[in-house]
């Protein structure tokens, strides 16, 4: 069943068009990877999908469960089931971690017409999920992302994803800044969330993440367009030969 449909998507920042017509369909249960060199538009795509201000869609459409999200604010898209794991998670001094997690989960529950979480039960749930992801109690007590290492920030992103249970998870360069052990923990966290009802879009520069989170489909993004699609072997091809050959062949 179709979860996400990106149709001929054009987008610009300021006066510069970055995405020049992207087409991509993700069904529930599928994991897609988008690979591309720096400046190919990978992060722009993740921000356009999640509805960040300043990124203007100039053509095409984005459908989530068959409905266009273009008129929706970032928070509405999130409550509709979209989740972006940030390449650079944002530090929020003064915003307590538990307050933040509870606000996010409650926003989702209210949208679904459900009761807000029971405070004590929620703390228990968060602790249990945090433990699996190697997020310490101390991290949970601190302000959001403040004083976290690069690896801790990424684990905290996956913790949020585990709590929010999105239908579509977009992982933007989740491997950047991770050492081997952190990469394994984060990947295990992501893999645990794979399922029939969930789609994932894994955005990465390198193949190494994809040997941990094995995708069903791989797409190569260059100059704001998908120039080639294939299965996981395409990622290995990039690893072997780099992007240059693929880009030349496409042009």
């Amino acid at each position: 069943m179709t979860l996400l449909e990106i149709k001929d998507l054009h987008a610009k920042i300021g006066d510069t068009e970055i995405l020049h017509g992207i087409n991509l369909t993700i069904n529930r249960g599928e994991v897609h990877a988008i690979m591309g060199p720096n400046g190919s538009g990978k992060s722009t795509l993740s921000y356009v999908l999640s509805g960040r201000e300043g990124y203007e869609v100039t053509g095409g459409d984005i459908l989530l469960d068959g409905e266009s999200v273009l008129e929706m604010e970032a928070d509405e898209r999130a409550r509709a089931g979209m989740f972006l794991a940030f390449q650079y998670p944002v530090e929020l001094p003064g915003v307590g971690g538990m307050t933040f997690l509870r606000a996010a989960v409650n926003a989702r529950l209210r949208e679904e017409g459900k009761d807000e979480v029971d405070q004590l039960a929620f703390v228990k749930l968060v602790r249990a999920k945090a433990k699996e992801l190697g997020v310490s109690d101390d991290m949970l007590k601190r302000a959001v992302n403040v004083g976290f290492s690069g690896g801790e920030k990424k684990r905290y992103e996956i913790l949020q994803m585990a709590l929010l249970e999105p239908s579509l998870a977009v992982l933007d360069e989740t491997d950047s800044g991770l050492d081997v052990d952190a990469l394994r923990i984060v990947s295990e966290g992501v893999n645990a969330l794979r399922g029939d009802q969930r789609g994932m879009l894994v955005i990465t520069h390198y193949q190494r993440l994809l040997s941990h989170i094995v995708p069903d489909f791989v797409h190569i993004l260059a100059h704001g367009k998908i120039i080639k699609s294939g299965d996981k072997s395409l990622a290995l091809e990039v690893e072997e030969n780099g992007y240059a050959g693929l880009i030349d062949a496409a042009e």
């Binding site: 999640s50 509805g51 960040r52 201000e53 604010e73 970032a74 928070d75 999130a78 409550r79 989740f83 972006l84 940030f86 998670p89 944002v90 929020l92 915003v95 307050t99 933040f100 606000a103 996010a104 926003a107 989702r108 949208e111 959001v144 949020q160 929010l164």
Partner: peptide, 18 residues
Amino acid sequence: HLFYLKSRGIEADEARMM
């Protein structure tokens, strides 16, 4: 900061208050 909170589903007004 606002975008990060909103990307988690938190409404703009609540995000601002936080």
